[in-house]
């Protein structure tokens, strides 16, 4: 069970990379906790999670090979 993580904006800065894979994380809530334990700065940041391009505020099941993007507040325009 492997998922691809994409990090953008300030989150890529905090994590120190923009693309990598992790194993054995099965839900988005579990992923948030895992990341926030590793990178406590994420706790003070509002960010959305997109699974295979779909953003959901609910806890979401992750499947093998899913692409999970960590999206800090947008600032285009």
């Amino acid at each position: 069970m492997e998922i691809k993580i994409l990090a953008f904006g300030i989150i890529a800065n905090i994590i120190g990379k923009s693309e990598y894979t992790i194993e054995n994380i099965y839900q988005t809530d579990e992923l948030r906790k895992y990341l926030e334990d590793l990178y406590p700065r994420l706790k003070n940041l509002k960010y959305a999670i997109a699974v295979n391009l779909v953003v959901s505020s609910e806890n979401f099941d992750l499947t093998n090979g899913a692409t999970v993007a960590l999206l800090p507040p947008f600032s285009g325009g």
């Binding site: 953008f8 904006g9 800065n13 947008f74 600032s75 285009g76 325009g77």
Partner: peptide, 21 residues
């Protein structure tokens, strides 16, 4: 509001902050 684009504001000394809309 909805498009995943991020702007990094760069200052004259090359330091930066992430922009917020």
């Amino acid at each position: 509001e909805e498009v995943p684009i991020w702007g990094k504001e760069i200052f004259e000394d090359e330091s930066y902050i992430w922009k917020q809309n």
